[in-house]
Amino acid sequence: MTQTVVITGASAGIGRATAQLFGQRGANVALLARGAAGLEGAARDVEAGGGKALAIPTDVADYPAVEAAADEAEAAFGPIDTWVNVAFTSVFAPFSEITAEEFKRVTEVTYLGYVHGTMAALAKMRPRDRGAIVQVGSALSQRSIPLQSAYCGAKHATNGFTESVRCELLHEGSNVRITMVQMPAVNTPQFSWVLSRLPRHPQPVPPIYQPEVAARGVVYAADHPGRKQYWVGDSTAVTLLAQKFVAPLLDRYLGRTGYDSQQTDEHVNGQQPHNLWQPVDEQPGTDHGAHGDFDDRSHAHSPELWFSHHPVAGGTGALGVGLGALLGMRFARRRGR
C-alpha cells in the first residue's frame, strides 16, 4: 500500500531532504511551504525518486490554509498516513534587538505552525484510529542558546505541547502516534535567509550535519513512532545530557562562547534578503535546495543516530558521549580561569 505523507517546510533544508527520501520509497508526498520555486524543486525531487508529489503553497501560521492543504492532500492521494512538521523561521539577534512583531511572527510559524499541522493531522487520523505525526525538534528545544530567543522559545513550547497531546492520545487508547526528533546543527539554507542583525554571517554551531542525516532520523521516526523522541547527532546527545546534569555551567559557557560560535568571519551589511515575512524562493531560479553553504564542514553520517535507533545500546553510547562532553566542558572552564 502506498504511503501518503504531508511535510511542512518542504521546500528546503530538512523538509526537502525528508521529501526526497519519502519519494525514493515511492510515497505520495504533499509538500507544504510558501516559496513557489522551492516547492517546484521539491516536487521534482520526489518524482525523480519514484514518488508522486503535490505542491501546496501554504503559510503554516494560517490554520485555515493548513486545514485546506490537508483536505487537498487527501483528495489527491487518499488518507494521510504520516504528517511531518518542519516549517520554521527565526531571527538571529540579541533579544533586546528583536521587535514584538518579529517575535510574534517567529512564534506563529515555528510554534503555532506545529500546532496547526498537528490539529489538521489529528482531525484526519483520530477518526480512523491510525497515523503518525513527527515533530522535527532541536537540541535547542531543551537547551537554549543566546541570539535565538524566539526560536528557542518556540521549540520549547513545541516540546510541552507535544507531550500533552501524547498523553491525551494514550488516555484515549488511540493508535495514532506522535513523536519528536531532536536535531543538531544542520547545513540548511536558513543561515542565508533568516533575518539576522549579527555583524557577521550566521552559521550553525559545529559540529554540523548534512540534512540527509536529519532526514534519515525523521523517516525512521515515522516508521517507529512509538518512542517519545529520537536524538540525531552526537552534539544533540552532548547538549541534552549536559543540560540535565550541569545546566548552570552550560549557561556560563554559552554566555562566553555562544555569540562567536554562531558567526563566521564574514562581515555583512545587514541588508541580506530574509524570509520572515515573505519567502525568498518565490521567483523562478531561486530554489535553494536542501543544503546550505557549509558542505565542506558538514558530516554525512552520525553514529548517535544508530544509537538512537537501538535504545539498549544507545543508552550506554549516549551516556559515554555525555560524560566525555562534561569532562571536556570542565577542562575548558579550568583553562578559561
Rank of each mutant, 00 (worst) to 15 (best):
residue 2 T to W: 01
residue 3 Q to S: 09
residue 3 Q to P: 03
residue 3 Q to Y: 06
residue 4 T to N: 10
residue 9 G to Y: 08
residue 10 A to P: 02
residue 10 A to H: 01
residue 12 A to T: 02
residue 12 A to N: 01
residue 12 A to R: 00
residue 16 R to L: 14
residue 16 R to C: 10
residue 18 T to P: 01
residue 19 A to D: 00
residue 20 Q to E: 15
residue 21 L to A: 01
residue 24 Q to D: 04
residue 28 N to G: 07
residue 28 N to F: 10
residue 30 A to S: 11
residue 32 L to D: 09
residue 32 L to R: 11
residue 33 A to Q: 03
residue 35 G to H: 04
residue 44 R to S: 14
residue 48 A to V: 02
residue 50 G to L: 06
residue 50 G to Q: 03
residue 52 K to H: 13
residue 52 K to T: 10
residue 53 A to H: 01
residue 55 A to W: 01
residue 57 P to V: 01
residue 58 T to R: 06
residue 63 Y to C: 08
residue 66 V to P: 11
residue 66 V to T: 09
residue 66 V to G: 11
residue 71 D to E: 12
residue 74 E to N: 07
residue 75 A to K: 15
residue 77 F to I: 03
residue 77 F to Y: 04
residue 78 G to T: 05
residue 79 P to K: 08
residue 85 N to K: 00
residue 90 S to F: 00
residue 93 A to M: 07
residue 97 E to Q: 14
residue 97 E to N: 14
residue 98 I to N: 14
residue 99 T to Y: 09
residue 100 A to P: 12
residue 101 E to M: 10
residue 106 V to W: 06
residue 107 T to C: 12
residue 111 Y to W: 05
residue 117 G to Q: 07
residue 117 G to E: 05
residue 118 T to A: 15
residue 120 A to P: 00
residue 120 A to L: 02
residue 125 M to L: 06
residue 127 P to Q: 05
residue 127 P to W: 05
residue 128 R to G: 03
residue 134 V to T: 05
residue 136 V to A: 06
residue 138 S to K: 02
residue 139 A to T: 09
residue 140 L to D: 04
residue 141 S to I: 04
residue 144 S to I: 07
residue 147 L to N: 11
residue 151 Y to I: 00
residue 157 A to Q: 07
residue 157 A to F: 14
residue 160 G to W: 02
residue 160 G to T: 08
residue 164 S to M: 12
residue 164 S to W: 12
residue 167 C to E: 15
residue 168 E to W: 11
residue 170 L to C: 12
residue 170 L to R: 15
residue 170 L to K: 15
residue 176 V to D: 13
residue 180 M to W: 11
residue 183 M to L: 10
residue 189 P to K: 02
residue 189 P to G: 11
residue 195 L to T: 03
residue 197 R to K: 15
residue 198 L to I: 05
residue 201 H to S: 05
residue 206 P to T: 04
residue 209 Y to D: 01
residue 210 Q to S: 05
residue 212 E to H: 08
residue 215 A to E: 01
residue 215 A to F: 00
residue 216 R to C: 03
residue 216 R to I: 00
residue 217 G to R: 00
residue 218 V to N: 03
residue 221 A to G: 02
residue 224 H to E: 07
residue 225 P to A: 08
residue 225 P to W: 03
residue 227 R to S: 15
residue 227 R to K: 15
residue 230 Y to C: 07
residue 234 D to G: 13
residue 240 L to R: 15
residue 242 A to V: 12
residue 243 Q to I: 00
residue 244 K to P: 00
residue 245 F to I: 05
residue 253 Y to V: 01
residue 254 L to F: 12
residue 254 L to V: 02
residue 257 T to Y: 14
residue 260 D to S: 12
residue 261 S to N: 11
residue 261 S to T: 07
residue 262 Q to G: 13
residue 266 E to D: 05
residue 269 N to H: 13
residue 277 W to D: 01
residue 278 Q to R: 10
residue 280 V to E: 02
residue 284 P to N: 03
residue 288 H to I: 01
residue 294 F to A: 07
residue 295 D to C: 00
residue 296 D to I: 03
residue 297 R to C: 00
residue 298 S to G: 09
residue 300 A to Y: 04
residue 302 S to K: 10
residue 307 F to Q: 11
residue 309 H to D: 12
residue 309 H to W: 14
residue 309 H to V: 13
residue 310 H to Q: 14
residue 311 P to M: 08
residue 314 G to W: 07
residue 315 G to F: 15
residue 319 L to F: 11
residue 323 L to I: 15
residue 324 G to D: 07
residue 324 G to M: 04
residue 327 L to D: 11
residue 329 M to E: 09
residue 333 R to E: 14
residue 333 R to A: 14
residue 336 G to S: 15
